Simulated assay, not measured.
Amino acid sequence: MEHDGQLQLYEAVADQLKEAHSRVRTLQVPEGVRMALTRKLLAITAAAKHDLAGAARRLERFMADLDDFEEGRSTEEEL
């Protein structure tokens, strides 16, 4: 059963990473900001290979920060 939970977490993280990359790609921000966000996502992706649960937590925080940015509650510097 533990294997099933791990597989579900892997699928959830993979789906969220796809969504995050898509959202970053469509942001209307300077290219430097987009590159920095993409680097963060690549770091989370790499972390998922060794610590899936930790990567899932980092990705949740990243997505929340991205939501705040898109809604004007934070600035580029805070991302």
Rank of each mutant, 00 (worst) to 15 (best):
M1S: 14
M1H: 08
H3M: 12
D4A: 07
D4C: 07
G5K: 14
Q6L: 13
Q8N: 11
Y10R: 08
Y10I: 03
A12Q: 13
A14R: 11
D15K: 12
D15W: 05
D15L: 14
D15I: 13
D15T: 08
D15C: 09
Q16W: 03
Q16K: 14
Q16Y: 03
K18A: 07
K18R: 08
K18V: 13
E19I: 02
E19D: 12
A20I: 08
A20F: 06
H21Y: 15
H21Q: 13
S22N: 13
S22M: 09
R23K: 10
R23Q: 09
R23S: 04
V24W: 01
V24N: 00
V24T: 00
R25Q: 08
R25F: 13
R25G: 03
L27S: 03
Q28L: 10
Q28M: 09
Q28P: 01
V29K: 04
P30E: 00
E31K: 09
G32F: 08
V33M: 11
V33F: 15
R34T: 03
M35V: 13
M35C: 08
A36G: 03
A36C: 02
L37T: 02
L37K: 09
L37V: 05
T38C: 07
R39S: 11
R39A: 12
L41S: 03
L41R: 11
L42W: 05
L42G: 11
L42E: 15
A43T: 09
A43D: 08
A43C: 05
A43F: 02
T45W: 12
T45E: 15
T45F: 10
A46K: 12
A46G: 11
A46E: 14
A47Y: 11
A47Q: 15
A48M: 03
A48E: 09
A48T: 06
A48F: 04
A48W: 05
A48L: 09
D51R: 01
D51C: 01
L52S: 03
A53V: 07
A53K: 06
A53M: 04
A53W: 02
G54A: 11
G54F: 12
A55D: 10
A55Q: 09
A56W: 04
R57D: 14
R57L: 13
R57F: 10
R57C: 05
L59Q: 01
L59S: 06
L59W: 02
E60D: 13
F62L: 01
M63Y: 00
M63E: 13
A64R: 08
A64Y: 08
A64I: 06
A64D: 04
A64W: 04
D65N: 14
D65V: 03
D65W: 01
L66G: 00
L66A: 00
D67R: 02
D67G: 00
D68N: 11
F69S: 00
F69V: 00
F69A: 00
E70Y: 00
E70K: 02
E71G: 05
G72K: 02
G72Q: 01
R73I: 07
R73K: 08
S74C: 06
S74P: 01
S74N: 07
S74A: 06
E76H: 01
E78V: 01
